[in-house]
Computed example of a mutant assay.
Amino acid sequence: MSFALKGVAYITGAGSGIGQSAAYSLARQGVRQFALLDRNPVTSTIQELKKNHSNIEIDDIQIDVADEKAVDHSVERAVKNFGRIDYAFNNAGIGGALNTTDKIEREDFERVLSVNTTGVWLCVRAQIRQMLKQEKLSDSYRSYRGSIVNMASMYGIIGPSAQVPTTAYATSKHAVIGMTKADAVAMAPQGIKINAICPGYVATPLVGTTMNKGSLMDNERLKVPLTRFANMEEIADCVAFLHSEASSYMIGTSLLADGGFTIQ
Rank of each mutant, 00 (worst) to 15 (best):
I158V: 14
N219S: 14
N231C: 02
V115G: 04
H243A: 02
M217F: 09
A4K: 15
S140R: 13
R129T: 08
W121L: 15
T117W: 05
A168R: 15
Y169T: 07
L5G: 06
D67M: 05
N231W: 00
N40A: 12
H73G: 04
L98A: 15
K80S: 09
K213Q: 03
G178E: 07
N150V: 11
V31N: 11
R125L: 12
L26V: 08
I158D: 03
I128A: 07
I158P: 05
G83Q: 00
A236Q: 04
G119F: 13
A35W: 02
I157F: 03
V115C: 05
G119C: 11
A246W: 10
D60F: 00
I158C: 10
F34Q: 02
T100R: 15
K133S: 03
E220M: 12
N91H: 09
G260Q: 14
Y249C: 01
N99L: 11
C198P: 06
L222S: 13
L5H: 04
A188D: 00
R32K: 15
D72P: 01
A240M: 09
S161T: 15
L113F: 14
G159C: 08
N40S: 12
M151G: 07
Y155N: 08
A184P: 01
K181C: 02
E107I: 11
R221V: 10
N195F: 04
G200L: 10
A168C: 08
I11S: 03
G30I: 11
I148G: 06
S143H: 08
T43M: 11
H73D: 13
A203T: 06
G19K: 02
S172H: 13
K6V: 05
G119W: 09
T45W: 06
S54T: 12
V115W: 05
S21W: 01
A9W: 01
S161N: 10
T262V: 11
T204H: 00
V112K: 14
Y87H: 14
